[in-house]
Each structure stands twice: as C-alpha cells, then as structure tokens.
Design a protein around this nucleic acid. Structure first.
Lengths: 151, 151
DNA sequence: GTACAACTTCAAGTCAGCTTGAGGTCAAGG
DNA sequence: CCTTGACCTCAAGCTGACTTGAAGTTGTAC
C-alpha cells in the first residue's frame, strides 16, 4: 500500500495530478489513513496505462472510456484495434508531411513558395481548414518524447 | 486586393482567426479602406503555410519564428530539415505505439496488464513522464485530418 | 502533548488558440 | 442624406489538463 507521495515519486506523476485523475475517475485510491489517500500498487499500472494512452494522443476522457478506474483495466480489444488504426492513419499523414518538408529543404527553387512540391503540400494543408476548430495542441510531441524516449 | 471576408471564404479561416493571426504577427494586412483591412493575395499562401505548420504539429509561435509575416516567407532550409527530422522521430514513436496496441488487441493474455508485450509498451510510455507538463493536445489529429484529408 | 511535515479540500489560475459579444465606425446603395 | 450591414476594437469566455494557493487536518517523531 502506497501513499500519494510514494506513487508520485515512483511514477513521476505529481500528487496534484493524481488527485486530479482520481477526481476524474481515472484512478481510485483504495482507502484513507486519516485524510490521506492510500493506493494499491496496481495504481502504478493504471498510471502507465494512462501515460500510454496520452502518448498515443488520446484525451483523458477517451482513456477513461477505454478502461475502468479500478485496477482491472480490461480494454475492449475492438476499441484497441480501432485506436491502432487511427494511429496508423495519423502516422501516414505525418509521413506525407515529413516527406514534403524534406523535399522543401533540399529543393533548389528560389523560394519555397515557388517550389511545386511545397505548394502541393501547402495546398493539402490548407484544404478544408474549415470551422469546428477548438482546443489546442503542442504538448503531444513533448509528451511523446518523454514517454517513449529512446524509441 | 482582398477584404477579410474574401480571405476567410477562400481559405476557410474565420475572420476572427485572421485578426488574431495579425495581432500575433503571423500575417499582415497591407492597408485599410476606412477601418477595414485589406489583404494582398500573398496572404493566401501565408495562411497555407500556417496550416501546414500546424498540421505538422508546430505551435503558432514556432511557425512565427520559422518565417516572416510579410509575403516573403523565406524558410531556413536547415530549420525545415530539422523539423522533418523531428517529425520523423514522432512517427517512429507513434509506430511503436500502434504496434503495441495492435499486439494487445490480438494478444490472448487474460488481461492486458499480464501481457508482457503490452507491459513493455506501458513501461516505455511511463518512463520519465516527469514534470514540465503544460499545455494541451487533441486537436492535432483532427487538424491533421482536415489538413491532409485523403492522404 | 505538542510541533510539524505531509497530507487534505476547494477555488482560482495558467496556457494555447481561438470564439463570442457588446458597442462603435463607416463606405456604398437607394 | 440616411440607412444598413460589413467591418472594427477590446474584453471576456471557452476547452483540456493541470497547477497553485490558502486554509484546514493529522499521523508521527520528539
């Protein structure tokens, strides 16, 4: 049985975040000693699972829907497979981007704006940047770096 | 010369966003007719460039640093190449994730938590999920979908 | 038995990338 | 000349994932 600071120390997840996750139903504490939360060691696995989900680009809400908060993280295999497919699509798109950027870096056109390949990429990127924009971005790559560091 | 609604219509970027981008120095309007902004057609390219950058996962700030706001978007080839490499790393990591998820979906272990491959993945993902977490996530895949739609 | 460090709750703040709303201006058409 | 609607500004609001701070509680060491 672990107290919150032990969990924090072992996982690198701050205590404030652990409380937040519990509030959101992503993890559970198995009891209290006075006021203080007590966690079962299984929570460590839970947290790894959450980190995995985040690194794969899923929101906490999605992660919450993927598996239960009590130690027994039973993931629906169909859902997992669907997520893998989603990820695969993302990967293919990012690959196209990467290739475009690489081309632009090598390309000898006087300006990227005059490089046909670069323009094609730009066109792709600007196609249908419609409404329904909402939240944010950025952390993802950082989180990924921390998560899978070393490949 | 285009007014803001024409730019909005042609690019799918809302007027409010265009004003926001101008405020942030990502684009420039070439003048005013009365109060109303006037844009040079070059802004359309600018906006494509911004969309491209966002789709590749860069923040507006990074994008701003990569090229100037006036039509002449001269991108440093070295920076481009570096970004491509960054993207490549991201892709490799996401690929590892995808493979892990696929494995977990097929794997016959009673619970994913008992599947060695899945555990290895989790370990990777949870390694060094340290401090310095900040902003958000999520939109990225969506934005990418809009941006590169159709691969 | 008392000090104190470590916990607790709850409300508010942060960040990016925008959107929304109130209230104001002004060029063009009738 | 006057109306109108598209534009303007500025401030505030929104989402997700947390963090921070104030104020209260408490197991443990002395």
């Amino acid at each position: 049985m672990l107290d919150i600071s032990e969990v924090a120390q072992r996982t690198g997840v701050p205590a404030s975040t652990l409380r937040y996750y519990e509030e959101k139903g992503l993890i559970v504490s198995t009891g209290r000693r006075g006021l203080k939360r007590i966690f079962a060691p299984a929570v460590l696995d839970q947290l790894s699972l959450i980190a995995l989900g985040q690194a794969a680009g899923f929101s906490l809400e999605e992660i919450g829907r993927m598996f239960s908060a009590n130690g027994e993280a039973r993931i629906d295999r169909k859902a997992l497979s669907a997520k893998a497919d989603e990820l695969d699509e993302t990967i293919m798109k990012l690959s196209a981007m990467r290739d475009g950027l690489q081309h632009a870096a090598r390309c000898r056109a006087p300006s990227h704006l005059e490089c046909p390949t670069f323009r094609r990429l730009m066109k792709l990127a600007s196609a249908r940047v419609q409404k329904d924009n909402k939240a944010v971005n950025k952390v993802r790559r950082e989180r990924l770096n921390r998560a899978v560091e070393g490949g």
